[in-house]
Amino acid sequence: MAVAEYRLCFTKGSSVRFLSHLDMAKTMERALRRADIPLAYSEGFHPHPKMSFGPALAVGISSLEEYLDVETVADIPAEELQERLNRSLPEGLRILAAKRCLKRPKPLNAVINRAVYRLTLETEPSRRPAVMEILEHCMSSDRLEVTRVNKNGQKVVNIRPWLHNLKTEAFDEAGLQVSVTGEIGSNGNLRPDDILQLLPFPVKVRNIVRAEMWHEEHGIVVKPLDLC
């Protein structure tokens, strides 16, 4: 019987950015066991630990803010859980905060509907102003069409309803940082590389980081740790 539930906020560093969602689940599960956290398990022939992650992150993208809910069969102070788990995690994964939930929280995937991505791009210096202008202009467009490829073929989608904010900032000679706030979850998904399709010429992507996630409704922002 689960007696306590915790919400964890963690980073997925560059060195582990290629872990798939499934790899991440296994890695966390094993780390929790190494840390001797008494996990609650489901019933049945194949008991699995009661843990659930927030929105999946595409392979190759690191993150400053990921979330995980986990249930235990013993009540442990959240700080102790965090400390023990951090000692058992492989390099690149780090628990930033742990909170013992006051009540049974709504699932992470049901509440998180915004994600911020930071893309570090490289362009030819001469093209940079144009790139910046095209991207900045997105916010005042009505439609933004991109092509998505899945196993059923190609599909043109309008990502404009999912784009909530976009800012660009130049650095170095050729560098450009783009911050995009997009919809995530059941109402639609903005993918960080969607916006690259809006450019008339290819740019080099140095890296993409998911920087933040939250719940937003009627302009009010609530962080996942404040929803449990």
């Binding site: 582990v16 995690l89 390099e91």
Partner: peptide, 10 residues
């Protein structure tokens, strides 16, 4: 399977 090539396993 990119994690074949990254190392860093526990």
């Amino acid at each position: 399977k990119p994690t074949r090539y990254t190392g860093g396993e526990y």
